[in-house]
Amino acid sequence: MKSAPFEHYEPTTTNEATSLLESLDDPTILAGGQSLVPMLRFRLANPDVVVDINGIDSLDYLREEDGYLKLGALARHADVEDSDLIDERYGSFADTAPLVADPQIRNRGTVAGSVAQADPKGDWGSVLLAHEGEIVAEGPDGERVIPADEFFLLPYDTTLGEDELITEVRIPTPEPREGSAYHKLKRKTGDYAMAGVGARLVLDDDGRIETAGIGMTAVDITNAQATDAEQHLEGERPSADLFETAGELAAEASNPESDEHGGADYKERMVDVLAQRALGDAAERAGAVRRKVTQ
């Protein structure tokens, strides 16, 4: 890695980090480095100052607290992948972690860094959207909580201020009858998604869908929410027909482009397929019984 020269700061507390971000000229945050280092290497990023947050131990956590699943800024993809809590209670997170990049990248890359990177082909943004997740940021004016659906603006562009540090990403802890899932199509291990869909379903006491969340990967200029599909699901009982229509609505809401990951038509079609698969898994994990029928 032959980057241009830069100054490297290693704060050990959040306060130290935020004051560095405030005082330094145009600083760049380094978390796992799995997006930033390649950009440094290609000299697509040529920062003068890098603030490395890896020494801030207080940001290294993954826990349930105050009605949230909270991931500190140093929670790595591999931490999610290895967590029993995630395995037991958060289907979509358990699905997503092993599908992100490859094991080496997952050992270093952070969930918060991935969200900050705001790559429309990144997976976590979709999961946060499906879960009504939030991004917690520290800046010169203190803490700010940004709902996921107000975070992503454009590819690699978010509503985060330049002097703000994401300290945490979080989602509400599951309701009694909640299930979630994430499905991703890729060309090989380590490849970004051709398309991906995250789904979350909360069932009410009657077995109807009370809340539905659908987030989509790699099919729009940002991670995108399939709002029409969500509305179509709410108030209904899970069924193959219902999910089929939701899949179609999600596909309609997507805006993929043709590129090396596949043609636009294919991706749109896959949104439909993946949404149906994710909804099926989410329903099952929420307590619905799924049966194969022979025609």
């Binding site: 009657d206 077995g207 009982r237 999910f243 294919y266 149906q276 099926g280 099952e284």
Partner: peptide, 30 residues
């Protein structure tokens, strides 16, 4: 790649929709 294969499948009518053969049932909450 999957897109190349799927396009062939679709061209000759071999592609499938996922919802064809599953059924969901939910008991009520209690």
């Amino acid at each position: 790649t999957p897109d190349v294969v799927w396009e062939k499948l679709d061209e000759v009518g071999l592609s499938h929709q996922p919802a064809r053969n599953v059924e969901f049932s939910v008991e009520d909450g209690e």
